[in-house]
Design a protein around this nucleic acid. Structure first.
Length: 512
RNA sequence: GGCCCUGUCGUCUAGAGGCCUAGGACACCACCCUUUCAAGGUGGGGACCGGGGUUCGAAUCCCCGCAGGGUCACCA
């Protein structure tokens, strides 16, 4: 039998990193077994702009390179893959369940139900519906409806015995049926709920392995009851731990971003990325631009492979090894290697992976990654120059967007901002001030105008002045870049070229 | 509260009774390198939730606690 796994996002407008991790495990398992990975859309809660809210999710998957064999956009033999288009299938299932006595029409009002649940809470009993407003016959239905009540359909769960789940990650889990609520499967407006739709879809789409987050473990007995009542085959289950908050065991939530930002390490990574969006002129709010969402990483120039590599290790491991290509992951992935306990999102470690991956990229590819950011920031650039700059920047570029830290190379000479403090320290005051003219003529005469020559000549200058190398180099740097940090001074000079260096020094002199 | 799940450095984890004086990675600290900033190199601190068993021997097996989490929706 071919392995078939699925991931079923709701069109919410964003791709949650925890969801991606679960999707990744599904994808890996399918790929590892030569099976199919299906992307189904859970849009029973019919919102208006499904397509619009879905797009960012599909884009995220494509960016990460998690391809799907069937589902949204691509179709397939077991469709439709949108729940909103499968209503008739669900209705049929509800009818079957009703006919078999595994479900019943219920006429309890919201208030009545609430009262029951509160009483149960008070008496410390399991919250189980009494079935007091259950309609067993058509006559009952008519009577309730005459009272002006509207009916919903509930599952009639067993009240005795137990449900045994064999979970590939957790082992055998035994749950007494008596604690399972008669959940609503069809709302009073006729639409169906998640548990029912899920079971029907998984069966129709021939899903063999249900790999999902552990918060669904408690839904599983209910789903098993439904699926057996419907005569469907039982898939294998694997409940993976959820992704937890930074430094806690609570489930990661997009909405708690303000809280996470209080964590210094988390904030550091957020600020780093935020600085890039600021330079791009992008409007962001913590709500939309958020390390909990995949788009965050895409926007500032992380590499999908780095994100994936970090993510796969969040709850899964293969010994001490940490670096995996996609092929490695596929070859090595097993459900048994998935951990049972929740893992917290550590964005700093994700950045560490990104740094490694980005550094390992050949120069040409770094340039390719960096170019869009320069263009987006409005610079007109020559790729040969960019190549030199990226090379000189070396490990200073952690994400592609970091190139914008070095905008002084791309700005016209007359627009380079000078950092006042740097100017004070290295150019206005002695000894820096005493060297400006000398350094200028040195640059005017140097031949050839390349890093080794410049270095040699400046060193001669340093010796002649009986100066220390450090301050001289800093004075030069500030003169041509306006900043006291950057990459090698001589490389910087060489990249800018004689003309631009001289123009900048002349301008610095007028500013001073 | 009922039911279920989980518990190794701050974080991700290795660990399937002796290879454990508990290993690796990120982070942190120190030093080295260095024209700034990065990067790099070397070193350091840092954990088996607790208590009982079983065993010659337990992080690993069993029991009892404790702690954390999930779930109990006409959300998915």
């Amino acid at each position: 039998m071919t392995v078939r796994t699925r991931f079923a996002p709701s069109p919410t407008g964003y791709l949650h990193i925890g969801g991606v991790r679960t999707a990744l495990f599904n994808w890996l398992f399918a790929r590892a077994h030569g099976g199919q990975f299906i992307l189904r859309i859970d849009d029973t809660d019919q919102q208006r702009n499904v397509q619009e809210a879905l797009q960012p999710i599909l884009d995220g998957f494509r960016w990460l390179g998690l391809d799907w064999d069937e589902g949204a956009d691509v179709g397939g033999p077991y469709g439709p893959y949108y729940q909103s288009q499968r209503l008739d299938r669900y209705q049929a299932a509800v009818q079957t369940l009703l006919a078999q006595g595994c479900a019943y029409w219920d006429y309890a009002t919201a208030e009545e139900l609430k009262a029951e649940m509160e009483a149960a809470e008070k008496e410390k009993r399991p919250k189980i519906y009494s079935r007091r407003w259950m309609a067993e016959t058509d006559a009952d239905r008519a009577r309730f409806e005459a009272e002006g009540r509207t009916g919903s359909v509930r599952v009639k769960m067993p009240r005795e015995g137990e449900c045994r789940i064999v979970d590939r990650i957790r082992g055998e889990v035994v749950v007494p049926w008596s604690g399972e609520q008669d959940t609503v499967i069809q709302r009073s407006d006729g639409t169906v709920t998640y548990n029912l739709a899920n079971v029907v879809d998984d069966c129709d789409m021939r899903i063999t392995h249900v790999i999902r987050a552990e918060e669904h473990l408690s839904n599983t007995p209910r789903q098993i009851f439904l699926l057996e009542a419907l005569g469907f085959p039982r898939p294998e289950y694997a409940h993976v731990p959820f992704v937890a908050e930074p430094g806690s065991k609570n489930k990661l939530s997009k909405r708690k971003i303000a809280n996470y930002l209080k964590n210094a390490e988390f904030k550091k990574v957020y600020d780093h990325a935020h600085a890039i969006t600021a330079k791009l002129g992008l409007e962001t709010t913590p709500e939309s631009f958020n390390p909990v969402l995949v788009d965050f990483y895409k926007t500032v120039g992380y590499l999908p492979d780095a994100v994936l590599n970090y993510l796969v290790l969040l709850g899964w491991s293969a010994g001490d090894r940490e670096t995996f290509t996609r092929q490695d992951m596929i070859a090595l992935f097993t459900l048994e290697g998935v951990n049972k306990s929740p893992a917290s999102l550590d964005v700093q470690k994700l950045l560490a992976f990104q740094e490694r991956y980005f550094q390992a990229l050949p120069l040409e590819q770094k340039v390719e990654r960096v170019l869009p950011f320069l263009l987006q920031a409005g610079f007109t650039v020559e790729s040969e120059v960019v190549r030199q700059i990226v090379e000189a920047a070396g490990p200073r570029l952690k994400v592609a967007g970091d190139i914008l830290d070095y905008s002084e190379f791309f700005l016209p000479d007359e627009q380079v901002p000078y950092d006042e403090k740097a100017l004070d320290k290295h150019v206005r005051k002695s000894p820096g001030a005493d060297w400006v003219t000398g350094l200028r003529s040195l640059l005017a005469a140097a031949k050839p105008f390349d890093a080794p020559t410049l270095q040699a000549q400046v060193e001669e200058f340093i010796a002649a002045q009986s100066a220390k190398p450090r301050p001289v180099s800093q004075t030069l740097r500030v003169l041509v870049t306006g900043k006291e940090v950057g990459f090698g001074t001589y490389e910087t000079l060489a990249i800018l070229g004689r003309e631009r260096c001289l123009a900048r020094i002349d301008r610095a002199i007028t500013i001073v």
